[in-house]
Amino acid sequence: MATLDYVRRRFLPHIWCPGCGHGTLMATLVRAIEELAIPKDQIVMASGIGCSSRIVGYLDLHTLHTLHGRALAFATGVKMAKPDLHVIVPMGDGDALAIGGNHFIHACARNIDLTAIIMNNQTYGMTGGQVSPMTGHGERATTMPYGNLGQALDVVAVARAAGATYVARSTVYHAPQLKKLLMKAIQHRGFSVVEVLTQCPTYYGRLNQRGDAVEMMTWFKEHAVPVGSDARKDDPARFEVGEFVNVERPEYCASYDEIVTRLKPREDEHA
């Protein structure tokens, strides 16, 4: 398939566990890029550390596998230096919101034209199932063996409050919808955030008796409701999917370029 043109096929099969949703997200992201017909040379994909971050190694783009939590900071440097490039930043939930939380809110506030994809599997997979900022209250993790004392962070609310100008959520079960949201996020001029619920049957699923990948995806199917739906009142476990924020605000690099243009010495000044 044409989709595989974007893939470094020699590295497949990938390292993710059987049934891990990250592979579905990767394939869906590639389809979104393919449908937008963005040349490979025009895309930089920067990731951090963790299961999620390994996505960049498999894609035939300019790929930057950085430090834990720092993908957005590296990406900010890339984008500022070459604003014409599309810069896509897939991150895990711990990567983006725990160790990288500071960079996340400030990237939102700058409204710099990056596409942040939060691959939310509610756990730290690479290290073996520790509690993450997205683990729900009472849920199990190897470092919350008696149940999580904290609450899951609402990344949509955080992104909106911090000033992201495009915010959406979907799941790997809803791959067709996810592709459309990713396409809109990539095209959006400003900081865009797409939260993607993706199953980790190996750790989060096993520790919380969520069953296998199919059962976890079925749970996504049964609990996802459209943005604004009343159905959440009946079941607090339900969550909204779709587009939450899509607004225009001055983009950081464009604003910078306006200053550069204003300061540029005019030819007649040297006459």
Binding site: M1, W16, C20, T24, P176, K179
Partner: peptide
Amino acid sequence: YLCEWRCPDFAIELV
């Protein structure tokens, strides 16, 4: 296409 779209491993495709 739902099999192709949801497969995490590029292992199935409609040609």
